[in-house]
Computed example of a mutant assay.
Amino acid sequence: MDAFFPYAETTQQITVRVAVTFHAEKSDPEMGQWFWCYHIRIENGGRTPVQLLTRRWTIADGRGALFQREGRGVVGEEPVIQPGEAYDYVSGCPLATPTGWMEGSYAMIEGGGGMLDVRIPRFPLLAPAVSN
């Protein structure tokens, strides 16, 4: 386990690592708003380049409601990741509850033209307890 990226999953030599941080300054519990930032590192342990084309997320709030999010690329990019290299990005997730989780997948194309469905590990969204 990596101390900075506590959540990781490998699909066909592509490893996705996740670190998540609650952001109190972007949250407003009195208004029912909590916000997390997550840092993703995608490592290519294979022998050919891969390109991230699309992402698919499943997000659950603390009430069990599920939300699906899909789109092209990540943070406006469709990165090509060379063998032995990694790609990092940071994004965020708002929720209407102080707890939840996220998981998902990336659709990638290999240098030889084959498609990969790369898993993003499930990670918790947990706001710290507030005492009065």
Rank of each mutant, 00 (worst) to 15 (best):
G76V: 07
I59P: 01
E78W: 03
P49I: 02
G73I: 07
I59Y: 03
R55E: 13
A65P: 00
F67V: 08
R63K: 13
G45Q: 09
R56C: 09
E77C: 01
D61G: 05
T54C: 08
L52G: 08
R69I: 07
F67Y: 14
V74F: 05
I81E: 06
Q68C: 07
E70A: 11
V50E: 05
G71A: 01
G46A: 01
P49A: 00
I59Q: 04
P79K: 06
P79L: 07
P79R: 03
L52V: 15
E70Q: 13
A60S: 13
G46Y: 02
L52E: 07
R72K: 13
G45N: 08
R69P: 00
G62D: 07
P79D: 05
W57D: 14
V75S: 12
R47K: 02
R69Q: 11
G76M: 08
L66I: 09
W57F: 14
I59K: 04
I59D: 02
R69L: 09
T54Q: 14
G73V: 03
D61V: 05
I81V: 12
G76Y: 05
T54P: 09
G64A: 09
D61E: 10
R55G: 10
P79A: 05
G73H: 06
T54Y: 10
P79N: 07
A60I: 06
G46N: 01
Q68N: 10
L66K: 11
A65Y: 10
A65T: 11
G64W: 09
T54K: 11
Q51P: 05
R55P: 04
F67D: 09
Q68P: 00
R55D: 12
G76A: 09
G64Y: 11
Q51N: 09
G45L: 01
Q51T: 15
V80R: 15
D61R: 01
G64F: 07
R55A: 11
L53Q: 14
V50Y: 01
I59W: 01
V80M: 12
G71K: 04
E78P: 00
F67H: 11
L66E: 13
V80L: 13
L66S: 11
A60P: 00
F67T: 14
P49N: 05
R63N: 13
E77T: 11
V50N: 04
V50K: 01
G76F: 04
P49T: 07
T58W: 02
L52M: 15
L52T: 10
V50W: 03
G46P: 02
I81H: 06
G71L: 03
T48Q: 13
G76I: 07
R47L: 04
R72E: 15
G45H: 12
G46C: 02
R69W: 03
V80C: 08
E70P: 00
T58Q: 13
A65S: 11
T48C: 01
G45C: 02
E77R: 12
G64V: 06
L53R: 14
R63T: 15
R56V: 07
E70G: 05
P49F: 04
A60G: 11
E70H: 06
I81Q: 08
G64N: 10
R47W: 00
P49K: 02
W57G: 02
G64L: 08
A60Q: 11
V80G: 03
R47D: 10
F67A: 08
E78C: 15
Q51W: 03
R56E: 15
Q51L: 06
G46D: 01
G45M: 03
T48F: 03
E77W: 00
A60F: 08
P49H: 00
G71V: 05
G73A: 07
L52H: 09
P79G: 04
E77A: 15
R69G: 00
